[in-house]
Design a binder for these strands. Structure first.
Lengths: 219, 219
DNA sequence: ACCTCGCCGTAACGTACGGTACGGTACGGT
DNA sequence: ACCGTACCGTACCGTACGTTACGGCGAGGT
């Protein structure tokens, strides 16, 4: 019958959520080599149920990715008073959040399977991760940038270019190196430092004030 | 006997190179779903030879990746007279080259398989791609940055930080989006424009001259 | 008490594919 | 002429895994 569970509506039994969490854990441990049997065993459910709920292996993977995506909905940041300080704080917080997510086991595992399956299967996993990764980040950040531009704190022509520059300054080679298996101890303090550096660099490029903070070393 | 062909010594028969080229083509077409049988058929060789030459499937993939890496050895750029113009040109050329490589089918395919296998197999494919991707880029770029610093055109404390910032400004979200299957028409003119923008932004952050080119739009 | 439904556990099926074995052919050396 | 080497093509084996089928069981309804 091809159920094709749409997780975004979250029409999910608690039982099914448990199953997806188990699948998520296995995905982190074993990557794309996880088997339907292993998921069933880990979740203490029958393979028959897996197939009834998710259609096939691809459907299970898709549902798992969407389930995780549903769980990371970040909180939007828009404080009342808006000035350079709050803009800076917002950008830093955003950068740090993003680096924390990217560095997590789950993100790495999901991106790995999505990259592996990109463009080749029916429920395009790559598109889903793209949608809930970079694109979601853009949707969340752009209002902040827009606000910065409207209040005269930032100056840029193309919103998309500004966003992508910020993305580059924050992520740099971190994600690709993690995906390729490079250990890359992202301690909490290192993340905070990188977030500050990226924010300062971004402000140096797109901020209107002629402050001295040109070099990427915060004070 | 575990041959484990070391391609970096290029102890490869012409016949074997042909086989690896065939494997490369199949990798681009089919990704990690390529089978030993398909490679043998495409290259008009026997599976027995594949196993004799490369040990096993992993060995074949490894040899293929190394073979491609051997073919992309970029040419170093160090002109005689060194000034801001040549530094800028060098950076732009570098950025454009890198974007062209990243956008190519072969790079995308190889990065996909390497990400998929990262950390899980014996010949760590991820490490190999890491070595011939980001790390090779760093080794090639750093001398240029060093020269820029020595001649007083650039100013930075940490070489590595400067490199990674340049990386971020050039690559941004391009690579991850390509890996996740996003079409992303990288025309030649778009690449050149991006290379110029990234270079200008980098110079704005790390250059010593107080030129006005702060915003990412070239003139 | 009985039926139905949803689920677990397990066994079974089909197949794709990694890996091996073997016969046949071309060729260079002696 | 004979042999060894290297290779192709193909058939074959073993296994892992996706997928399906079936028997049993507890719960809720009638």
């Amino acid at each position: 019958m091809q159920p094709t569970v749409d997780v975004s509506e979250s029409g999910l039994t608690e039982r099914q959520k448990d199953v997806l969490d188990a699948a998520l854990a296995l995905l982190v441990e074993a990557g794309d080599t996880l088997t339907m049997t292993s998921v069933a065993r880990r979740a203490s459910c029958s393979k028959e149920s897996l197939y009834k709920w998710f259609g096939d292996r691809d459907g299970l993977l898709t549902a798992t990715v969407q389930w995780q995506a549903l769980k990371v909905r970040g909180v939007p940041v828009d404080p009342g008073a808006f000035n350079l300080a709050s803009l800076t704080a917002g950008l830093e917080r955003f950068a740090a959040d993003w680096l924390r997510v990217l560095g997590g086991n789950i993100s790495v595992a999901l991106n790995r399977v999505a990259v592996g399956h990109a463009g080749s299967d029916k429920h395009d996993l790559g598109a889903i991760v793209l949608e809930n990764g970079p694109f979601a980040m853009a949707r969340r950040l752009k209002p902040l940038l827009q606000l910065g531009r409207e209040t005269g704190l930032l100056e840029f022509q193309e919103m998309d270019e500004a966003f992508r520059t910020f993305f580059g300054l924050v992520v740099r080679d971190v994600q690709i190196r993690l995906l390729l298996g490079d250990r890359l101890g992202l301690t909490e303090t290192a993340i905070d430092g990188d977030a500050r550096r990226a924010t300062q660099q971004f402000l140096a490029l797109y901020g209107v004030q002629t402050k001295p903070a040109i070099n990427g070393h915060q004070s």
